[in-house]
């Protein structure tokens, strides 16, 4: 009798795990369709725009329980561009992103909250120049569907927005010295390939 109960409990646990695993889908960020862009106040004038071209990472999306989802991404600092070479060099330099010493910016989620069926909040550690700060991104699932030209290729598209401050990272001179920011608005649009 005891053995039968134990087997039943194990079977239930196994079934639960399988159900959970069945809902957690893995995706790989499609670097060719990823736009990590930012805007920052430029001195007393306007708004400056910039973009990172090289992004990679993975997403785990649990549709049954979104809070079990996670994101891990890495951005190549050297891929920054702002439509002006000299400024790109300045931004790669030690006054800002310090690419020679810290070639990558990373983000790793610690918490995912559901807002509604298509939107959520992803909180995680953003590491720039060796310093990690917690940031929260408002994320929207735009679509998930097989590619019209290849039924075996399924992609999900996400859009995310967030805010960081340059003062939180080793670029404190950005605001005081160069009159930039300090608030930086981030807009991320990316597609991820289902594995």
């Amino acid at each position: 009798m005891r053995t039968r109960k134990l087997i039943a409990a194990l079977a239930f646990a196994g079934a639960s795990m399988l159900t959970s695993a069945a809902f957690a889908d893995n995706y790989e960020i499609d670097g060719q369709h990823a736009w990590v862009t930012f805007t920052i106040k430029h001195g007393i004038y306007g708004i400056a725009h910039g973009q990172f071209d090289a992004v990679k990472g993975s997403i785990v999306m649990d549709k049954a329980d979104v809070t079990k989802s996670s994101v891990k991404a890495e951005i190549d600092v050297g891929s920054i561009h702002t439509a002006f070479d000299q400024r790109d060099n300045d931004l790669k330099g030690p006054d800002f992103f310090n690419a020679a010493e810290f070639p990558a910016i990373s983000f790793e989620s610690t918490k995912v909250e559901k807002v509604d069926d298509k939107t959520g909040k992803v909180t995680g550690n953003l590491t720039i120049s060796g310093v990690s700060k917690e940031v929260t991104l408002d994320v929207k699932l735009l679509n998930e569907a097989p590619a019209p030209w290849d039924a075996t290729l399924t992609k999900a598209a996400f859009s995310a927005t967030g805010k960081v401050s340059t003062a939180d990272f080793p670029m404190a001179k950005a605001a005081g010295g160069f009159g930039l920011g300090p608030e930086v608005d981030i807009v991320i649009d990316l597609e991820a390939v289902k594995k």
């Binding site: 030690p94 010493e101 120049s129 080793p170 001179k173 005081g176």
Partner: peptide, 12 residues
Amino acid sequence: LGPPAVPPVAAS
């Protein structure tokens, strides 16, 4: 460079 950061991470 601003005030000293504790602990210092970047070379600057």
